[in-house]
């Protein structure tokens, strides 16, 4: 409760400072709208459904591409950790491509797939996949060999060892990789949505882009605010429970 209050007080103070700055009339209200105007926009956008529709479009793209990236990246990461051939080929490729900011995939995706959902999907997958492979690979390599030996003495072999020992043992790394993949995917999708208009659905990025076109600063700031909130919620809902579980089980530093 005390933590909630201090957080609430902090953000209230920020809002008050913002409002005061606007009232001082240092900048044109076109450039710096007041918090009130922004919340009016948000309220309107919620009421007429544009915000909801845009958020659904964006989240659909994100979840689709992200899930695909994770489901593909996890087994590849296990393979690169286990087999030299995979490590020297796909592993090396992943290591290289992971350093490429995922926005850089947007031009290529546009040429290959045109202004389609496939292009969006491709960009999100590229944002997720490589960091997932690297994290899983790292995770498996950091497992103390004694775990696998102990499991072997108890009769665990092959697939059983991978599913029941290697996978859970590298879980802290895998969750870290999933979190990083999520962040990359989110950033790349926003970039792609701002960059290209895709007629099959207007996402949050487009809303932001049109805010600029219309010189509607309250829309720009309002949508930015929503993007931040979604990012925060994703972290709290998707990753926090996992991280809390890991910290409790492993006895590592947690909240």
């Amino acid at each position: 409760m005390k933590r909630f209050l201090s957080a609430a007080a902090f953000f209230a103070t920020l809002l008050i400072i913002w409002e005061i700055l606007v009232r001082l009339n240092i900048w044109s209200p076109v450039l710096v709208p007041s918090p009130l105007t922004v919340s009016e926009y948000l309220l309107g956008a919620v009421r007429d459904g544009t915000l909801y529709d845009a958020a659904i479009v964006t989240l659909k793209r994100l979840v689709l591409g992200y899930t695909f990236g994770i489901v593909l990246g996890l087994p590849i990461g296990l393979l690169t950790a286990r087999f030299k051939v995979w490590q020297d080929t796909l592993g090396l490729l992943a290591l290289g491509l992971q350093t490429l900011p995922s926005v850089c995939w947007v031009p290529l995706a546009l040429i290959w797939f045109g202004q389609t959902e496939t292009a969006m999907f491709f960009v999100v997958v590229m944002g997720t996949l490589w960091s997932m492979i690297i994290a899983t690979d790292n995770g498996v390599r950091s497992i103390p060999p004694i775990y696998a030996r102990a499991a072997r003495t108890m009769g665990s072999r092959g697939l059983h060892t991978w599913v029941k020992v290697m996978l859970p043992a590298s879980l802290p790394f895998i969750v870290g990789g999933m979190k990083q993949g999520w962040a990359f995917a989110w950033r790349s999708l926003m970039a792609a949505e701002i960059y290209v208009t895709i007629l099959s659905g207007f996402g949050l990025g487009h809303l932001l882009h049109y805010g600029r076109e219309l010189n509607a600063m309250e829309q720009v700031i309002g949508v930015m605010f929503i993007i931040v909130v979604i990012g925060l919620l994703a972290d709290k809902i998707m990753f926090s429970p996992w991280e809390r579980f890991l910290h409790r089980r492993w006895g590592t530093q947690g909240k």
Binding site: I146, Y147, R149, T153, M154, V165, P168, A169, L171, W250
Partner: peptide, 16 residues
């Protein structure tokens, strides 16, 4: 084999 079980210097228990 299950007829021979091993106990190591480090406990080698699974933290998960």
């Amino acid at each position: 084999g299950r007829d021979r079980m091993v106990m190591f210097q480090e406990s080698a228990l699974f933290p998960w």
